[in-house]
Design a protein around this nucleic acid. Sequence first.
DNA 1: TGAAGGTGATTAAACGCTTTAGCAGATTGG
DNA 2: CCAATCTGCTAAAGCGTTTAATCACCTTCA
Lengths: 358, 358
Amino acid sequence: MNSQENSSGTPSSPAPAQQTRRAQPVTLRQVAEAAGVSTATVSLVVNNKKAARISDETRKRVHDAIQDLGYRPNAMAQTLVSGSSRFIGLVADAIATTPFAGQIIHGAQDEAWKHGYALLIANTEGNRELERDAIAMMLEYKVRGILYSTWFHRATDVPDSLRESDFVLVNCFAEEPGARAVVPDEVQGGRSATEVLLKHGHRRIAFINATTPAPAKDGRLQGYREALEAEGIPFDNSLVLEAFPDQEGGYGATEGLLKLGVTAVYCYNDRMAMGLYDGLREQGLSIPDDMAVVGFDNQEVIAAHLRPPLSTVSLPHYELGAAGVRMLLGLDAEQASGPEKIYCPTVERNSVRALAPA
Amino acid sequence: MNSQENSSGTPSSPAPAQQTRRAQPVTLRQVAEAAGVSTATVSLVVNNKKAARISDETRKRVHDAIQDLGYRPNAMAQTLVSGSSRFIGLVADAIATTPFAGQIIHGAQDEAWKHGYALLIANTEGNRELERDAIAMMLEYKVRGILYSTWFHRATDVPDSLRESDFVLVNCFAEEPGARAVVPDEVQGGRSATEVLLKHGHRRIAFINATTPAPAKDGRLQGYREALEAEGIPFDNSLVLEAFPDQEGGYGATEGLLKLGVTAVYCYNDRMAMGLYDGLREQGLSIPDDMAVVGFDNQEVIAAHLRPPLSTVSLPHYELGAAGVRMLLGLDAEQASGPEKIYCPTVERNSVRALAPA
DNA sequence: TGAAGGTGATTAAACGCTTTAGCAGATTGG
DNA sequence: CCAATCTGCTAAAGCGTTTAATCACCTTCA
């Protein structure tokens, strides 16, 4: 890479930048001395200040010195003087309990990075004390702001110390007036899921909802009703079942479902759909021929690889993280009020087929 | 909380610490002025230096001032003077492609936190340039060291800039002599998986290996052989099949498997086992009665909720992350040589049953 | 009574960088 | 030929801490 001749004395050191490895980091001053200029000059060329008048010759000497010494600016010192740090904090209540949390981190990281920020993360495991400490740590690092995220969509209260900084709630919300938030659009998601079925001609559609109270429970049901009613199909409460939102719940709901005489079913989530697959198969029923199924969440490992692959609606965790930092940074036009709702895209696979016209 | 009387003038401010919200952060100097002491004194009490001689009265004045102003130390300034930061960097090639990466982050975060470090993360999506930038960023923040992790166990090469810092490879390894690494013990895992079957009396055990070359492929096979041989069962190469390591691969392997006349099968991973479940069921075969199955990875969403729940071997991602930071910090006794191998624990569920004695 | 020692604080330098004001010398204009 | 302007660079202050050195004052004891 560096084709410059070795004019600087020491003849046989193969990797000049490497030899200082793990030693005290090289400072601006050392570069300045090596180049025979002042630290101000070095700073000016490092930061490419166009206002500064530096001769090409000097500029080159500085660059060479930087190369030779393997200089890296000290970000701590920079932020100290500049007054504002380039950190965004992300506190999560469960980083790994679910693949989802990872996506929030991912989205936040990408977006933060895009705007020159680094992500500082902490996970609290739902522990209030840990949470307080984590937030304190972030405040001490003078983060630009904090993303407070939960692994499932829910109401939360805002920890006091959070208020000492800018913050936005991600995948959760609080009644509190000033609290900005980003959440998935459960209602739209529920509508989309139902529409997939509707679009294929199904008219009698069951919904297996969760038993566990949550915004998702209400929203997804609401979306189901809206989609139905938009098609002029009256909502029939006897078509909505409830079960615990996991595989076993879905499996257990099979019997009840079969009594309903429906041609299609929309499950609260993919895991229930997975259980339902087993239940249906046990009854010798085929998906999508005997029953069309859609899920919700788009939990990759499951949805994409069931037999047949499951049509579902995606929970936009990546987008949630990204939108969170955008909101924090004030990049999007400010919402009127209430949390910003993120669109849940439909993912069509093969668990739904057109209903043969009767 | 703060039951101190409001002796300081302004009468009706309800939340004293809160009112400075979002303003310029309070500094040590301001606390010092408010308490009528020098900044040195404040520093001394904040850090609880026992060597320092500070009267109780002064100490109290300082604490009150801190409370009133809502002071938080500036970590940047602290690390600047102390010379060493409290950061550990984690660069991952895929944060969210898989639930696994989340676990590595989680483990690293917990362990780092335990030792007073904060985790700085970056994900590179396998992009070399992004990777370089991410590492550069970490170096500029003068991290204590960097964890370089991959989402599946593999050989890697060490990016040049990584060498400018302490680092350890997590879930990957390099030939390079100086490169410390932590990886899962695939061989032991393969042995454990096989032993679960052996323990239940199975003697004729198939192994469905992956087609994709990887340390896991070799190691898990090796473990299978070792376990067999330890029981005096000669290794029979015709009992090892190969398929693409996902659900479809497992499903597709059903036919070949059934020709083998085995009573049990050990799958390269849980996803293949999931596919195999479907294949077996299609043939009207029951797990575990007609065929005992064990997987590998312990991919929660799948393994715990298949019908029947899958016995498997856990890939210790959390431990990998945690062991990574311990190694980085030099907390564990140094290994003789080669990567440190992390134990893969067995998780027994219901997909294996004792073989009725013939 | 005066030196020695203890107590409770302060002063000031340093950490690595950015940035404004300004300086010396060269060039230009009138 | 002198002032004005331009060019290339530097001095120094300041960001918020920590910490070694020091200071003023008070006790104690020989």
